Simulated scan of single mutants.
Amino acid sequence: MITVAHSLLVLAVASLSEGRTFQFQNKYGETIWVGSLGNPGHQSINGGGWEMAAGSTMTVNVDDSWQGRIWGRTGCKFDASGRGSCQTGDCGGVLKCNGAGGKPPSSLLEVTLRGSGGNDYYDVSLVDGYNIPITMTPTDASGGGDHYRCRPATCTANVNAKCPSELQVVANGAVVACKSACLAFNTDQYCCRGAYNTPQTCKSSTWPKNYPSFFKGLCPDAYSYAYDDKSSTFTCANTGYRITFG
């Protein structure tokens, strides 16, 4: 006979297997506006965007196989209908990005959850540039083995403070973001396209100026350009994650 207690236990286990918990924290010191974009076939988290006051936290549940990207927007002003703009990370002038990506440069979290028992993949990408510090940390895992297994993927440096002048995005006299070389100059070599569209032909050490080494020096665990996989991709399994801005 199936008891009520057994039924509740089954429901609890099912619930755990059907989703993950993302804990968002704003430690940036000022209000940010989170942006989210699900990959094709995956919904954006919380309509794609929301406001977080300095020091605030927020917890959301996502599908166990969610895939997409998350970023922080700064300097935003929205009216009562959610229309407006942001200095960095803007997604078409709306609070709820709802299917739109953020305008680079912005620090990105790229996330691929693989369901119960599968390996999740996550990373911080500065391939299109940087705007604010961002970190993704497993919350339910004990770690395991090496630097890239169940460890924080992070970029906590103030890149804007050291950004080369030719990469700077300036608003109201302050550097608010730092472009990648691809975004700033749009050449095949800097963008790893055309004749440079392979790991063998696109090596930042051979560029006219090795801009990825600047980003990598400040944020060694983040993607600095397209073929920076080996020192940037993290894995874990059966865990929630804490996403921290600042």
Rank of each mutant, 00 (worst) to 15 (best):
K77R: 13
S7M: 02
K162R: 11
V124T: 04
D64E: 13
C236H: 02
A181I: 01
C219K: 03
L11K: 11
S56M: 09
G173R: 10
C178A: 06
Y196A: 09
T135Y: 01
L108N: 08
V94N: 06
N172H: 14
S65K: 15
N46M: 10
T154G: 06
S142E: 13
A177K: 07
P104H: 10
A161C: 04
N172E: 12
V34W: 05
G93V: 07
A181T: 00
N26M: 03
Q43R: 12
K216E: 09
N210I: 09
D90C: 07
R149F: 15
G129V: 02
S17I: 10
H147W: 14
P199I: 03
N197A: 15
I2P: 12
Y225L: 05
S56R: 10
Q87R: 11
F214K: 12
S224A: 15
V124N: 01
I134N: 00
P152A: 07
S36M: 06
Y211W: 10
G143Y: 03
R242E: 14
E30S: 15
L8H: 14
L108V: 12
E166G: 08
Y28C: 10
A157E: 02
Y121P: 00
N186R: 14
T244K: 09
C86M: 08
T206R: 14
P199M: 01
L183A: 12
V127H: 01
K96N: 10
